[in-house]
Simulated scan of single mutants.
Amino acid sequence: MFLRQLTYLIALDRFRHFSRAAEHCGVSQPALSAGIRQLENELGVSVIQRNRRFLGLTAEGQRVLAWAKQTLAALDGLKQEAAFAQDVSGGSLSIGVMPPALLGIPLLMESFRTAIPSLHQEVRSAAAGDIARMLREHQVHLGVTYLDQIPPGDAFEVRPLYAEQYVLAGATSAPMPTGPRCNWAEVASIPLCLFTRNLRSRQIIDAGFRDAGVTPTIMVETDSISLLHSELRAGRLCSILPVAALPETVGGAGLRTCPIVPCPAPQVGVVRLRQPNPSAVLERIWEVCTHLRADDIFHV
């Protein structure tokens, strides 16, 4: 059995299409199909459902896929371990980040780069509830998410980064409350643009309005943080955002913020899958995470 065959299977599951999977692997479609058939012959089971198109994995294929991901993840760790022994300034790291934490990721990445100067970093945006799955499937090495979204048990290790604070943000021309703080009833009458309801940060905001017994005036819902920022800068709408998700130009761009009380302060942290033999690169990164706290940075 060749590792390339396992790579073909993972790509096929990801792209759900023979041609796109082959293109991703840098081979022809017949070569990819032949590799999958060879894998099936060696294992003695059918791993994919097919006619002329890819119809999905069989039950046996799903089990082989999980094994393939673990095998290739272990191989990647072995390669990094060998490279790290020769050059402690290198390696690669993939990070899954929930949208409200994306703007704070450069600070985290810079800390990692200080520890490992030539570290290659890949950042992928995902809903908070998907981070644990991505870690389990070895799609990412680290996750940055709400810690209450991580399943209890021994499968994961966590490091808190900061307690999230929510604020009402709007342009100087927007109908913002005049006091240093505001409550949910005051915010409910203001036209808002918010994250979509599938995101955990929006669910926290909805709980605030619900507990206050008021209904907000929501004009725009999106999972794009850049669109929320555009609406804020245009002065058309206000938004409720964690401090970590505010545009960097708050103040300079004529935006104001007003902390909302009472408001929960969910913990945001770094998460990794517990492994018996993590790579030296991941161990160094995890050591950096133990010394990181950003409460003062993401609080107004």
Rank of each mutant, 00 (worst) to 15 (best):
E60C: 10
R37P: 00
N51Y: 02
A126Q: 10
E81A: 04
R50Y: 01
P100L: 09
R124S: 09
Q121P: 04
E60P: 01
S118Q: 15
I105T: 15
H120R: 14
E110H: 14
L108G: 05
D87H: 10
T71H: 13
P99Y: 02
S94I: 11
A74F: 04
G96V: 05
G104T: 01
P106Y: 05
L39F: 11
D76Q: 14
R53L: 10
E42V: 09
F84Q: 14
G61Q: 05
L75C: 12
I95A: 07
A101W: 06
G44E: 11
W67P: 00
Q49W: 02
W67C: 05
Q121T: 14
V47F: 05
Q49I: 13
V47C: 14
V64M: 13
G129Q: 07
L102P: 01
R63Q: 15
A126T: 07
E42C: 08
F54R: 04
V88W: 04
Q86Y: 12
A82S: 09
G90C: 04
I105F: 06
A101C: 08
G104P: 01
A101K: 07
Q80H: 02
K69C: 06
S111D: 11
F84N: 11
G91P: 10
F84C: 05
A126V: 10
V45F: 11
A66Y: 00
K79N: 10
A74D: 09
L72A: 07
G56R: 11
L103A: 13
G91R: 03
R53C: 02
L103P: 04
F54S: 09
A66F: 00
Q121A: 06
A82V: 10
R50D: 02
G91M: 01
L103N: 11
S46E: 12
V45R: 15
A68S: 15
A127P: 03
A83N: 13
I95V: 13
A127G: 14
G44V: 11
S92N: 13
S92P: 05
G61W: 07
R50S: 12
A82H: 11
T71R: 15
P106G: 06
Q49T: 09
L103E: 12
L72Q: 13
L78S: 14
D130R: 15
S89I: 02
V64D: 02
G61E: 12
R53W: 03
Q62G: 06
R50G: 00
V123I: 15
M109Q: 15
S111V: 00
R52Q: 12
Q86A: 14
I105H: 08
I95W: 03
E122N: 03
M109P: 00
Q86N: 14
K79C: 09
L103Y: 08
A59L: 10
P117H: 09
S125M: 09
E122H: 13
F112S: 00
P99A: 03
G77E: 05
V97G: 05
S89L: 05
G44P: 05
L72T: 14
D130W: 01
L57V: 06
S125R: 10
L65P: 11
T71D: 06
A59C: 00
E42L: 14
L75K: 15
M98F: 00
